[in-house]
């Protein structure tokens, strides 16, 4: 509120517009975050994070290292038709 009072007349932000502004910023950043996460998942960037989530819930064998997982993941992916004509 104190900042709003310093603004020239006619440019002062009322509490409701301030609220709308903050909500918009939060919505945009959430949207950008979701888009980024989707891009990571689509490209395979997030594959190891996803694997750790599952491997962490399984008792027994220790999860693969990032490096081992990467090589194994590629071996499996490119041993069957993965790209079409």
């Amino acid at each position: 509120m104190r900042r709003a009072e310093k603004l020239p007349t006619g440019m002062q932000r009322n509490p409701s517009s301030h609220f709308v502004f903050r909500v918009s910023i939060v919505a945009i950043s959430r949207l950008a975050g979701a888009a980024w996460q989707s891009l990571r998942e689509w490209s395979g960037d997030a594959a190891y994070d996803r694997y750790l989530l599952i491997a962490g819930t399984r008792p027994g064998a220790a999860p693969l290292s990032r490096s081992d997982f990467y090589v194994e993941h590629l071996q499996r992916r490119y041993s069957r038709p993965s790209r079409c004509c």
Binding site: S38, E41, W42, L53, I54, E72, R76, R83
Partner: peptide
Amino acid sequence: DGRDFVPTNKWVLLGHHFAA
């Protein structure tokens, strides 16, 4: 299992499938 069987958001999977 986080390897072959990975539940995926439908829009992400649409992108995957289309790219394939």
